[in-house]
Simulated assay, not measured.
Amino acid sequence: MNDDREDDFAEHELPHPDFRCGFVALAGRPNVGKSTLLNALIGVRLSIVSPRPQTTRHRILGIATSEAGQILYVDTPGLHRGAKRAMNRSLNRAVRSAISEVELAVQVIEAGRWTDEDEALYEALDEQKVPRLLVINKVDLTKDKAALLPFVAELSEKHSFEAVHYVSALKRKGLEALTHDIITRLPVRAPVFGEDEITDRSERFLAAEMVREQLMLRLDQELPYATTVEIEQFQDRPDGIAEIHAVIWVERDGQKAIVIGQGGEQLKAIGTAARRHMERMFDRKVFLRLWVKVREGWADDESLLKQFGYTD
């Protein structure tokens, strides 16, 4: 933990003598359900979700406050092996940075699967000497639950975890026991955030993510990975409506045409769905305008990645 965070802790009073608070990394390879798990644990749809791997590109802090304590969940991008593009390398740096600053790590895997990427993440956690819980997600998809026992036994022979939890983030099963276990492992400490706060991210950031989520859900093949979203304007008008102007960046002219769609129908559908999500999250009306622009090679340009918010 850095000194700035320690200063943040000092700003709040301890609600009771056994109140606990700390940072907990949710880590795993792409598409194991970390973002779905974060949303289930905090009870709010904060982190964007799609069936595609590598949907999460940023570290997102989700705050869950209860009488027992405050858990500061850090949802990380999936750890990539053989990352060739600058963006993938940036995401890997974000993961490694996140796990170096937490009191506890939760490694999330799919039921019955342990891949080379899972092993690489385990080794990264091992290097940081951070206590680890293993969460086996998507157990609802396993018909024979007894088959998981030898799988876990073999894993436990070769790897060291403080505890193992079986959960279904989608069905919200096993979360109460997991939450209790996490709380008991955090230090006695005053809360960092107010009890009603759910994230430290701005509405501007969340708006960009909601547009990108629709790109992930609505575009085919590899096209969603060639896109990113930049918010050029976010202001509250006198009539109480949030006016948001966003640019969808793509890498080629052909991609721009696909995002816009015939007669602009695809772009309109993306904007309508994103706006509805924004209005629910921000609790006010939203006027959203979208543009699609071409910036060749943006995902390999370190300076552009920083401009678009990809930081360690």
Rank of each mutant, 00 (worst) to 15 (best):
L215T: 11
I48Q: 07
S202T: 15
D75T: 14
T199D: 03
L141V: 02
L125G: 00
V167T: 13
A40H: 02
R57G: 07
S90K: 01
P15E: 01
L290M: 04
E110T: 04
T311R: 14
A40V: 04
M1P: 05
T142Q: 12
V108E: 09
Q255K: 08
R201D: 06
T115V: 05
G22T: 06
K256E: 02
D118T: 09
E195N: 13
R218V: 07
R276Y: 08
R96G: 02
D118L: 10
V44M: 12
S50F: 10
R85E: 11
L104I: 07
A40D: 04
I183K: 00
T115Q: 11
A120D: 13
Q255P: 08
I231E: 05
A40Y: 09
R29E: 06
L170Q: 15
N31R: 02
A40M: 09
N137M: 05
F23G: 01
R201P: 04
F151N: 01
G82H: 06
I183D: 01
L134I: 08
R289L: 02
R81E: 07
I198V: 15
P131K: 03
F161K: 05
K173E: 13
E176I: 07
A169S: 12
E232C: 02
G33V: 03
D7I: 10
E232Y: 00
F161Q: 09
I42D: 02
L149Y: 05
A147E: 13
A274N: 03
Q128Y: 00
G69F: 09
R237V: 05
L186Y: 05
R113I: 11
R185F: 05
I231Y: 05
R45M: 07
F9R: 15
S303E: 14
A120M: 13
A146L: 14
I71D: 06
F151L: 09
V164H: 10
A146P: 01
P238G: 12
D181T: 15
A169N: 12
L267W: 08
E232H: 08
A124E: 14
I244R: 02
W291A: 09
D300K: 07
R52D: 00
E230S: 06
G271H: 03
H58F: 15
D301V: 13
P30A: 12
S47C: 12
L288C: 10
V130H: 00
L170S: 13
E123V: 14
L91T: 13
G254T: 09
W298V: 01
S303R: 15
R189C: 10
R204C: 11
V152Q: 09
D220H: 14
S160A: 15
Y122L: 01
R96Y: 01
E230C: 00
A64T: 14
E127M: 12
